[in-house]
Design a protein around this nucleic acid. Structure first.
Length: 135
DNA sequence: ATTCTAACA
DNA sequence: TGTTAGGA
């Protein structure tokens, strides 16, 4: 659906995104540094977010609240392609299914880490004490 | 009035 | 993450 071009159209500045997501500008920019979102820029170097960017940030916010760190969030959202034109629609539908799988896999990974404890060479996907309430 | 980058009593 | 300086 050509609806995706609208969802990917750069529309709002960071100020509006802050109200839409209840995230601070600091957090929004920080997530961008970690490539969790890459908004468009205006001629004046100002960020412009699309509907897709906003929903992405909402997903990120949700995971952060659940105690998942950047590394973990990347694994959950990495399969989601940044944009999608008509040629990418089919691919995206496939990836959406993969995303759902990844989501359930996340719980297994979290539980696995909580039970088996971190083993050498493996990066922790959880952070803080919230992880203790995750069983 | 808003947003941007860089940096930390 | 918060906050602030200094500039666009």
């Amino acid at each position: 659906m050509n609806d995706d071009i609208r969802k990917n159209m750069a529309l709002f500045p960071i100020g509006i995104v802050m109200k839409l997501t209840d995230l601070t500008a600091r957090q929004i920019r920080y997530y961008e540094q970690h490539e969790l979102v890459m908004p468009a820029r205006t001629g004046g170097n100002q960020r412009l977010y699309s509907f897709n960017d906003v929903s992405r940030l909402l997903e990120i916010k949700d995971l952060i609240e659940k105690g998942v760190n950047i590394a973990g969030i990347k694994q959950v959202l990495h399969t989601v392609s940044q944009d999608s034109d008509e040629a990418t629609v089919i691919t995206e539908q496939t990836e959406n299914k993969r995303r759902e799988m990844t989501d359930s896999q996340l719980h297994k990974m979290l539980k696995q880490q909580l039970i088996n404890g971190k083993r050498p060479g493996q990066v922790s996907l959880i952070q803080g004490e919230l992880s203790r309430f995750f069983h």
